[in-house]
Write a protein that binds this DNA or RNA. Structure first.
Lengths: 361, 361
DNA sequence: GTGAGAACAGCAAACGTTTTCTGTCAGATG
DNA sequence: CATCTGACAGAAAACGTTTGCTGTTCTCAC
């Protein structure tokens, strides 16, 4: 169906080897006029290299696999985007499979990807650590982008939740708040404990006593935020601000406040986390800390390609910092919108300005 | 690096051909005990077929390409999900590339995918009809899932916007509304004109006179909905209901109503379109018509695989119907939530019950 | 007892590349 | 003038499969 090297060879009067070298090996010394001629003929005939043959010969595919728990999760598409943008610069393609939170499917996916259509794998927001023996012994490099459970592990790129939580709390303190409550994330989740730790750490850094009565357990959902907030409003000495561990719970808290006759932000300030899309759509718009998902993907891809080139070489867990998006729910002057939380070392201008999927619209 | 057929052959005492047939060709007559033995040895040795070699030989890859304008668009991930769920049942993988609304990139993507790592291509939410000669003459099957511009074209699966708009209007009429305004989508978009046509058609079907004063041009965005609504409120004989061509504009209209001192739905009913995630998060929750994105992807994948099997065989444009999600913004009794708009012929129970990403939470 | 056919297994070619090795020729060097 | 070197081009092997063809053996019908 497609034009082959041999046909080009015949048409141009050279041998297959020369044609191959002229077309793909810029280092091999081939006469300039020969190369020109061959290139020309190849273009004229519409030559497209047969990747299967090339892969068979070279044992590399210029393709990586992405295993995501669910592409419908709000964080996964930006991670993928970050990965793909980096890949494109290096002529790599990506094969994406959903594991659907199902270990068996994830297993199948890994096996399918090991059969060599890919040179490496990135796990995007994977829950169960499915680095099984198959994967290990295949020798294929792999990287985790935002694994949700488990402790620190090599080859992973994760959000710096501790830092981000501190950022949120610091913002509230800066606005004069001293009684700052927190609605925690679901128990067992890595982000939940990290964000709580960041909250406590920043309180300590600001010399504010930690008050257990101001901490409520949440569930990552709207409902959990709503009911947690109701409890907080009833505390003897109620908070003037609430840090919700994610945006959905922040929204729940806002609605609870409104239903209780409190105005946000005048009567109570509420800050969220994740920078979900709806935070800039809702009334009031929610101040929040972003998940640096795009950059996590970008970084993961960079590291993976590095490993593919230089052989597997484990690296430490890398944490990416999010930034604070100041909107309406805390009462800050929105015009002074800062880009605090930006780590210039890891965030390229380009990502920030053009590509960051987080800019306010 | 990997176990090959030859190694299995040596280990099991059979020839490479027999091993191959035992492992992959269930039709070829090979002795049952032989097959057992070979299968066993293969498993023991951890055999994984080399896809590159297989593809080279058979000229098929069991992989399709998906070209999406932007995976960050709200509709793309569910389309992809629909595609992939179908693919998995047939042991296909999918290579995804973003074209970023850039014809050049799309061109590159097509070229990259033609070099045979894929057996077919689906364009997910693609704008510019980039079916170029390269693609045509490659002979690879392709399908469009939700193309945004251009007129009817073969091999595409699109939402039935005319039907959906009628559905929304009929719902309003059913609630007693007679003066129903519409905020149109951005000009030039296929969906915009189709939804407007559906609105007009349903008015006619209900014997309601069409009043041009009740139609405002929108821009698909919040702001457009907001300002269009303000204009509508100032009309001599104002509408009692508004059909916004998408959810973002519906939200803008709701906020405009609230700012104007009108209660939604008591003073004015508002219905949106798309069933975006935020419609079930906002107050009031927005009644809307869903984009059957998941099913569109699923259908597109099915059609594409059919073409791959039986050779390219163009089919007519296929329209998929969305359904009405009754929520709070129109004042209907929410308990009587129906699944109107469901076409049982094309929507499998499974998709609807388990997989439809649209169920209310 | 012979021949036909079924059931199985192996040989070898082929898929389109890349790459090692070998060869040729021109010019430089002694 | 003989030899060496470098610049280039070609022959052929190899990557791991699949598959058409060729055997071989065995069974069964005549």
């Amino acid at each position: 169906m497609g034009v082959t090297l041999e046909e080009i060879a015949r048409a141009s009067g050279f041998s297959v080897s020369t044609v191959s070298r002229a077309l793909t090996n810029p280092n091999y010394p081939v006469n300039e006029v020969t190369r020109k001629r061959i290139t020309e003929v190849a273009r004229a005939m519409g030559y497209k290299p047969n990747m299967a043959a090339r892969s068979l010969r070279t044992d590399q595919t210029n393709t990586i696999g992405i295993i995501a728990d669910d592409i419908l999760s709000p964080f996964v598409p930006p991670i993928i985007r970050g990965i793909q943008d980096y890949l494109r610069e290096h002529d790599f393609l990506s094969l994406i499979v959903n594991s659907d939170w199902d270990p068996d499917i994830e297993q199948d996916a890994i096996n399918a990807l090991i059969s060599r259509p890919v040179d490496g794998i990135v796990f995007a927001e994977s829950s169960h650590l499915a680095i099984n023996d198959n994967l290990r012994q295949s020798g294929k490099p792999y990287v985790f982008a935002h694994r949700l459970f488990g402790s620190t592990i090599a080859n992973s790129v994760v959000p710096d939740d501790h830092y981000g939580a501190a950022l949120a709390v610091r913002h509230l303190v800066g606005l004069g708040h001293q009684r700052i409550a927190m609605i925690k994330g679901r128990e067992g989740w890595h982000s939940a404990s990290r964000r709580f730790a960041g909250y406590q750490a920043e309180l300590a850094a600001q010399n504010i006593d930690f008050d257990p009565a101001l901490v409520q357990q949440g569930d990552w959902e709207y409902e959990g935020g709503y009911s947690a907030a109701r409890v907080l409003f009833a505390v003897a000495s109620p908070p003037t601000a609430i840090f919700a561990a994610n945006d959905l719970m922040a929204l729940g808290a806002i609605c609870a406040a409104q239903d209780a006759g409190l105005r946000v932000p005048q009567d109570i300030a509420i800050v969220g986390y994740d920078n979900r899309e709806f935070t800039r759509i809702v009334r009031p718009k929610i101040t929040t800390v972003s998940m640096p998902v795009y950059e996590m993907g970008h970084t993961a891809a960079k590291l993976l390609l590095g490993q593919i080139r230089n052989g597997q070489e484990d690296f430490e867990e890398i944490q990416i910092k999010g930034r604070l998006f100041i909107r309406e729910s805390c009462g800050a002057d929105v015009s002074q919108q800062t880009v605090e939380g930006l780590d210039p070392a890891t965030t390229s201008r380009r990502i920030l300005l053009d590509r960051d999927p987080d800019p306010d619209r």
